[in-house]
Write a protein that binds this DNA or RNA. Structure first.
Lengths: 107, 107
DNA sequence: GCCATTCAGGACATATTTTGTCCAAAGATA
DNA sequence: TATCTTTGGACAAAATATGTCCTGAATGGC
């Protein structure tokens, strides 16, 4: 996919896509059918994109939708940890819980 | 802390605390000041406890509040991954993003 | 069998959170 | 200065989550 730097935020990656394309907020916003102000907020991680919007962004910039969605999800998890000031080891615990819950559901 | 099995869900751990204490839903609910039906739902992971409630639970069962909170947070992350059918590697990405965002904030 | 009690789960009103837009102001560019 | 872009606050609208009430199934004692 065309996203360049890894491990930056979803918003930063989106901004990079836009700037690489040499477009303004207004132009991109018009194409993906949202208010430019909302796009600006998403780029600064002040608003979260809906799934529908992620799809439109992926289509517009011709990047892989699933990868973009996973960028967004990993952002959400990262921000949750920061917001809650949680220890990073909860990620490991979460991973084990995923496995556990999956076994529960296969019964 | 008194929680026994690891890597089960928050609700199951809560239920285990209650059953270990030999108490009914009604009794515990009365003590932590919620409707028994809500407590039952939390035990079955159909409702999420508020932080205030987590504090009350920790106080009541005399378990470490911070640990209980982290159990809850890891649950939330696990359920998010399951709900979104996301790849587990997003946890690794999230971890790197946490580090990245922290460096951003220290500037 | 019958009564009392516990637990599960649906429906629903209320509360809380999030989203998206509008508008004004700040920053850039020329 | 004039124009265009970006930032950011305020706020209505939409979406989501919470907590309670109520009904019914299940269990256990008598």
């Amino acid at each position: 996919m065309a996203i360049v730097k890894k491990h930056t935020t979803f918003g930063e990656q989106l901004r990079q896509l836009r700037e690489t394309a040499g477009m303004t907020l207004r132009e991109v916003a018009a194409n993906i059918e949202i208010d430019p102000s909302l796009l600006a907020k998403i780029e600064r991680n002040q608003r979260q994109p809906t799934k529908h919007l992620i799809r439109n962004i992926a289509d517009f910039f011709e990047v892989n939708e699933k990868e973009l969605l996973e960028e967004f999800l990993s952002d959400q998890i990262a921000y949750k940890i920061l917001d809650e000031e949680a220890d990073l080891n909860i990620l490991k615990v979460a991973e084990e819980k995923v496995a556990y819950i999956k076994t529960l559901r296969n019964e």
